[in-house]
Write a protein that binds this DNA or RNA. Structure first.
Lengths: 343, 343
DNA sequence: AGGTCGAATTGAAAGGTTTCAACGTCGATG
DNA sequence: CATCGACGTTGAAACCTTTCAATTCGACCT
């Protein structure tokens, strides 16, 4: 059984060629066009490879070929199930065309995002999908300008410098609040933040539009701004909501994502507030845990896998189609009513 | 503003050298040892790089250097928050030593796992961390034998062919069932599967040991075997549990992971079964959503980030320490009691 | 003036794979 | 018997970066 010596260099095609008693080019042919090689030679070469523990050097291969067979997705937060679902859509599309997907996690840090982007660019990946910390960042532009296709996922940018794939957040906000208005609420809260996130603002805008359209006064919609879109912040928001004098306290909350909604729900239940009787809750994203919550969450569903798949298709088009033009795809969200709002 | 022509080749150090009017070696020095270059020259070279949109070619760099500055984690299932937490522990450790982490998702498929491993090996990553579909797979051995450090995460292997990092599942099972026995239960269920998973079996074994130690007859512990460890399967198991005649129906369930426990909880609540009054539930992993569940879940906590961090340290040791020896690290789980079991 | 030293710069070589034009061999065809 | 084509095989060139021994240049010393 072959076992590499601790310090031994990996075997190269040259070594394989020598061992098999053939030329370098033949070994390469066995690897890349086995049909052009006679069965005996092929056999001989394969034995040599096995014996030497030959592993193709992908760097050299890429160096020669000019680009890799890899696609990359730089996620904003791998701990948010929304993004892992998006990534599985990308993965499926990549697999169909024989590319590997690598994931990088920027964990909400612009610094990490930059360093991932730089490395991916240097690796000459076929394309980069990214849910950026800041969609207006010039770092993205530069990567694209230097020739690596970049597609922005679940965000939009004011100019149209990239392809992007997103969901209509204003509409989503409208759907959520229409639903609440239809159920007769007259005091509602919007829970989410920080304010500089485009999504947080868009969903709020939609919420306000729907609220106005329902003939409700502007000041009966309270914004409870959170520091992040996490479960912990949702719980915290619950405490703040509970602190509002009963007379003016909203009986319904629209949360900017499901993590916040779950936190809010948890706080409500643990402090004896009944959902939906005392407090209706609408989430956003419709992650799996939303339906699985003990009070299943009404939520605004986004086509998560489709988002990923479409982004992958756009980046592949940009990578291979010479007359590619940038497109901004906008999907339509959909309200899924469950028990956390009154039937 | 520089904008690459559509078909234009990326600029190389050679082009930069020509533009800046210096030699190739100087450009390389600017990149790698800027202090050895006079400020004026450095400045000149950097201007040229900017002008040409120069991007270092990582393939050529690696080819020369022999290995990359990357660590990889092949996850079993990126949609399970347990694994994303493990990955964030790895990420933290990698970041400290200046390595990038790339994630690959095998989505429970041995085929995908193999193809990821092959590519990573060809990319000469510094090391591979993997939570394998099947820890006994020979593919893993081969990768390691050919010289890429491999560490198995959250699994153990019968031989000691690799470093591995895991948590004592037998003990975890014992803790869970001791907790239930202490609370006076006399009929309990173990919910999890499929049976071929080592973890599922180990946790069951621990459960049985504790149950016997509590003086309970063997047949008062029912195994409800599921097809996978998912929320959907947990719900399904709930239906099966409800189907058991009331007299013999377990009043407590120990679930092989939190996803299953959440599914079971959801089924219970939606069908009017009170938790914990009618049914106590213990989960496993203590993922964030366990604490955030509407009935906060009692769960067996595993040190998730630490698991990842330790695995990363082991793989780095193997990669750089010539007298590395394989170690099997086993962490101790801890029961976190919450409202889903009676106080 | 001749010599020494250090700093800055140079350019060839190496690293592994793929491609491709060219070569050799053999059997078939005219 | 000469010619041709098909098939299998060859080896040099190219991809781009890094390294390192060698070189140049100027300043400084005697």
């Amino acid at each position: 059984m072959p076992h590499r010596e601790p310090g031994a260099r990996n075997a190269s095609v040259k070594d394989v060629a020598a061992t098999a008693g053939v030329s370098l080019g033949t070994v390469s042919n066995v690897l890349n066009r086995p049909d052009r090689v006679s069965p005996e030679t092929r056999e001989k070469v394969q034995r040599a490879m096995l014996e030497l523990g030959f592993v193709r050097n992908e760097s050299a291969r890429q160096l020669r070929a000019g680009s890799s067979r890899t696609l990359a997705y730089v996620m904003l937060d791998a701990a948010n199930p929304f993004f892992t679902d998006v990534s599985s859509g990308i993965d499926a599309a990549a697999e169909e065309v024989g590319l590997s997907l690598v994931l990088c996690n920027s964990r909400n840090s612009g610094e990490r995002e930059r360093s991932h982007l730089a490395l991916l660019e240097q690796q000459r990946v076929q394309g980069i999908l990214v849910t950026p910390v800041d969609p207006e960042s010039s770092a993205l532009e530069e990567v694209a300008r230097r020739g690596t296709p970049v597609v922005v996922v679940d965000r939009t940018r004011s100019d149209q410098a990239f392809c992007s794939v997103a969901v209509d957040d204003v509409l989503g906000g409208r759907l959520a609040v229409e639903h609440l208005a239809d159920r007769g609420h007259t005091q509602i809260a919007y829970v989410g933040g920080p304010a500089h996130l485009g999504q947080v603002r868009d969903r709020l805008q939609g919420a306000r539009e729907a609220w106005a359209a329902a003939g409700q006064p502007e000041d009966s919609l309270t914004w409870i701004e959170t520091a992040a879109l996490t479960v912990a912040e949702g719980r915290e928001a619950g405490a703040r909501l509970a602190g509002i004098p009963a007379r003016r306290r909203p009986a319904a909350a629209f949360c900017a994502n499901d993590l916040v909604a779950l936190g809010l729900l948890q706080h409500a239940i643990s402090s004896g507030v009944r959902v939906p009787e005392d407090l209706s809750i609408v989430g956003y994203d419709d992650i799996e845990f939303a339906a699985a919550a003990a009070v299943p969450l009404t939520s605004v569903r986004q086509p998560r896998q489709l988002l990923g798949r479409t982004a992958a298709e756009l980046v592949l088009d940009e990578a291979s189609n010479p007359n590619h033009t940038h497109r901004q795809v906008l999907f339509t969200p959909e309200l899924v009513a469950r028990s956390s709002t009154q039937g």
